[in-house]
């Protein structure tokens, strides 16, 4: 399943947003040949009686960055949270359709949700370090998943902090509280915490929206580095950011996937009128 060829996307393409044509065939050809890490098939999502996602079929190729863009409330964050079943903790929600990770349905009965979330990590909009020391924050996931012995811990923590480009800034105060870090450092600490458990996919929900431009630049640089090892999905409100960091971009609108294509193509020659209107700032 993981080698799913993209022609499937065409047949199961998401219902079009009002006034939009079905997903263009261009998206299909651009994904061809890429190994697919995650995939949703005809995914519907409901908050109680309100349907938030309509018929989303999307493939996420591995070891690259896929960006989700769209106006507020378009469902991009909801969809992102479907990929690690984070919506499960919200009462009265319902999912229809499949989400595949390496070909296995994560909503299937055999899924261990704890293992799933270890494999699909997440970084949140607002940095959420635990009120513990810097070291303990990074070690947390390793500890609860039993991934490292006490002796291995310092090494693993250092590796994670280096990957998050934070090591040099915090190596002398690993035992200090994480709450004392700056906003940008806190967010990179959360990234370090997430990559420490060696996830396959890293979901990022507007990771820079609370950061200043310099911190944003650092995180973007980091994303660029991390895509060599991880499959990254990033939700962003900032279209320049999507253009800078991602190889593929998916445009969401009113709970539907309007267009999914190579970022370059989507921004320079969008297949849908509505996409063009959005990226040129004519609405939203």
């Amino acid at each position: 399943m993981s080698e799913t060829v993209v022609s499937e996307m065409e047949t199961s393409a998401g219902g079009p947003a009002p006034g939009a044509e079905p997903t263009s065939a261009a998206a299909v050809s651009s994904l061809a040949g890429r190994k697919i890490r995650m995939e949703s098939k005809r995914l519907n999502f409901h908050y109680g009686p309100k349907q938030a996602l309509w018929d989303i079929s999307l493939q996420i190729p591995e070891k690259t960055v896929t960006a989700f863009i769209g106006p507020s409330g378009c469902g991009k964050s909801t969809f992102l949270r479907c990929l690690n079943r984070m919506n499960d903790i919200i009462p009265d929600t319902r999912v229809e359709g499949d989400v595949l990770l390496d070909g296995n349905d994560i909503y299937g009965p055999g899924t261990d949700i704890v293992d799933l979330r270890r494999r699909v990590g997440m970084v949140f909009q607002k940095s959420n370090p635990f009120p513990k020391s810097i070291f303990e924050n990074v070690a947390y996931g390793l500890k609860i998943n039993g991934l490292a012995s006490r002796g291995e811990m310092p090494e693993r923590v250092e590796k994670a902090l280096r990957r998050a480009a934070l090591w040099d800034e915090v190596k002398d105060r690993l035992d200090a509280s994480a709450m004392g870090l700056s906003g940008g450092q806190q967010q990179r600490l959360c990234i370090a915490r997430a990559v420490a458990v060696e996830p396959e996919v890293l979901l990022m929900d507007e990771p820079c929206s609370a950061l200043d431009p310099i911190a944003t630049g650092k995180v973007e640089e980091l994303i660029h580095e991390l895509q060599r090892e991880f499959t990254i999905v990033i939700v962003t409100h900032n279209m320049q950011q999507a253009a800078r960091v991602s190889e593929f971009t998916a445009f969401f609108m009113l709970g539907r996937l309007v267009e999914h294509d190579r970022t370059e193509k989507l921004f320079t020659n969008p297949g849908q009128k509505i996409t063009e209107d959005y990226i040129t700032g004519r609405f939203g």
Binding site: M86, I89, V114, R117, R118, F124, N128, F130, I144
Partner: peptide, 22 residues
Amino acid sequence: PGTLREGALALGATRARAAFSV
């Protein structure tokens, strides 16, 4: 903040683990 709970769950913590360790 509920985001702390989500942060722990996203790292593979069970609900009880997230509650008592975070």
